[in-house]
Structures are given as C-alpha cells and as structure tokens.
Design a protein around this nucleic acid. Structure first.
Length: 265
DNA sequence: ACATTGACCTGAGAGC
DNA sequence: TGCTCTCAGGTCAATG
C-alpha cells in the first residue's frame, strides 16, 4: 500500500487518533522494525511524551514529540497503523505498540517487516540523509518545476517517477496509474517526451494522487477509469477502450498498461 | 548514468 | 488437504 496516498491516509488517521495523549508504555515485539535505536532506547525516547503533530514527505511520515524530536514511520510494503482499545481487536503483526494513558493502543503493523520506526532528533538532517526530493503534492512542484526536474535525465519515465530523490511519494502502483491517464508507455525514455507530454504527466500526477487520497485508498471508491482496482484481476480490460491490459517489466517492477492508450513509441 | 538482479522479510494465492 | 512455487504496492547494494 504505502505510496503517497496511503501514507497521507495514515497521516490523517494518526492526526485523528494518536495525537495529544501521553504515551505510557512502548512494547516492541520485533526489534527489526526499530531503526537507529534499540527497542529500549525507543521506549525511553517516547514514554511520558505525546505526539503533537505530523509531517509527511513522500512515503515517510514524521510525528513531532512534545518538546524536542520526532518519530519517523516508514511503512515498507505492508505497513499500516491500527488504533484500538479492546485487546481483542489487536491486529496480527503489530510489532510495536504504543499504549496511551487513555487506555487505547496504537500499533505499527507490518507483516513483512520492511518498514520501521526510528527516533529523529533533527528532522532537517534526517530529510537530508534520506535524500528525498520534493513531495509529489508540494504546491511548489508546478509544471515548470516538474520540467526542470526532468531536464538532463535519461531514465525511463516510470523509473524517473519512482525516483524518490527526484520526486518523493510515487511507487509502482501509482506510477502505472499516472502513466495510464497520461497515455505514456512506462518504458519511454524521458528525453523522448516533449513539453506538452511533461505538462500532461504533471497534471495527471497531481490529479491521480489527490483522487486516490480522497478515496482513502479504497479501490472501490476510486473513479471508474482507474487501473488500481484492476491490478489483481486476470484478463482485465482497459476501462477506457476495452483493450486487454498488458504487463511489462520497467525498473525491475511489474507494470500494468494499456497497449492502445499507451502505445510503444 | 542507467538498467537489472538479488537481498531483506513473510504471507497469500495458484497449481499440483 | 497439504505441499511447492511464484509473486507482492519499498529500498538498498552489487553488478553489467
């Protein structure tokens, strides 16, 4: 799940549920999802404090502690948050749990353990170290800035969209979605796109990411011309033209596309 | 520079 | 039913 729309949805979930309450206890069931600290250090870092506000850059989520410091949350491929009171509701694979003073728990759930939590003492330094580019939905990333970022790059367009150091937040699923709406074949070299192509791509990037976020990343709530709900459907047809969708490897990832709407150059 | 592959992890789903 | 195989929405390092 966790591309920009997913992480933005998690951010709103955390805003609605996990802020402004004192963390009484931190339980780490698997230390592999704790980075840059031992489980004891993380517990020490959080206990007695509150999370006060959130910040998201690309696929990375940060929660500010009261006083100094932040908590970083990265969701890997299978991570999400669960806030609950009844222990019977505790999800499987909740590798880290924050127990709040109000009796609720916030679990960091990650079946494959490719995500992590980490204490962050200096947010600016952390962002620099992660080498994250501008957030894909940052208002400053207008069409002109988008063209500027593409300048000089010779990668395939899908690789570029997924390059977190260039633009942060787009992964395999939403790069496919964006390229589908823009009518661009995923393996097209970036230099083959003209300004009109890049402007169109930029427009659909914003549009697709906002639309997916608005639908809270529920495939059933997305517009009828979205590919996301068709990802795991065998023999799916293009929602626009009915051509059977095809798959191709790009950037080492399986990419779904419509051979008619996204012709190979 | 760029593309590809394997590793990190582990479960879900397909095929036998 | 149970076993084996392949694949999965993210990154990173190593290799061509």
């Amino acid at each position: 799940m966790p591309e920009l729309p997913d992480v933005e949805t998690f951010r709103r979930y955390l805003d609605a549920n996990g802020l402004h309450q004192t963390i009484e206890e931190v339980a780490v069931a698997d230390e592999r999802v704790v980075k840059r600290a031992s489980p004891a250090e993380l517990a020490d870092y959080l206990q007695g404090h509150r999370l006060e506000r959130t910040y998201r850059r690309g696929k990375h989520l940060f929660a500010a502690l009261d006083g100094e410091g932040w908590l970083e949350l990265h969701f890997g491929m299978t991570g999400y948050l669960a806030y609950y009171r009844d222990p019977g509701e505790a999800p499987d694979y909740g590798h880290v749990r924050l127990a709040y003073a109000n009796g609720y728990q916030l679990a960091f759930v990650d079946r494959r353990k490719l995500g992590y939590l980490a204490p962050v003492r200096d947010l600016a330094a952390c962002l620099a170290e992660l080498e994250l580019g501008i957030d894909a939905l940052d208002p400053e990333l207008d069409a002109a800035a988008f063209r500027e970022l593409a300048k000089g790059r010779r990668v395939q367009v899908k690789c570029w969209l997924m390059d977190q150091a260039s633009i942060a937040g787009i992964g395999n699923v939403y790069s496919d979605e964006i390229l589908f709406h823009a009518g661009i074949y995923p393996r097209t070299p970036l230099p083959d796109l003209d300004w009109a192509d890049l402007d169109r791509l930029h427009g659909y990037m914003s549009n697709v990411l906002k639309t997916a976020t608005d639908s809270q990343v529920q495939p059933g709530a997305m517009p009828g011309d979205f590919l996301v709900p068709l990802r795991k459907v065998d023999d799916a047809a293009c929602p626009r033209c009915g051509t059977p969708l095809a798959k191709v490897k790009a950037c080492g990832r399986t990419s779904q596309y419509c051979p008619t709407c996204q012709p190979t150059p």
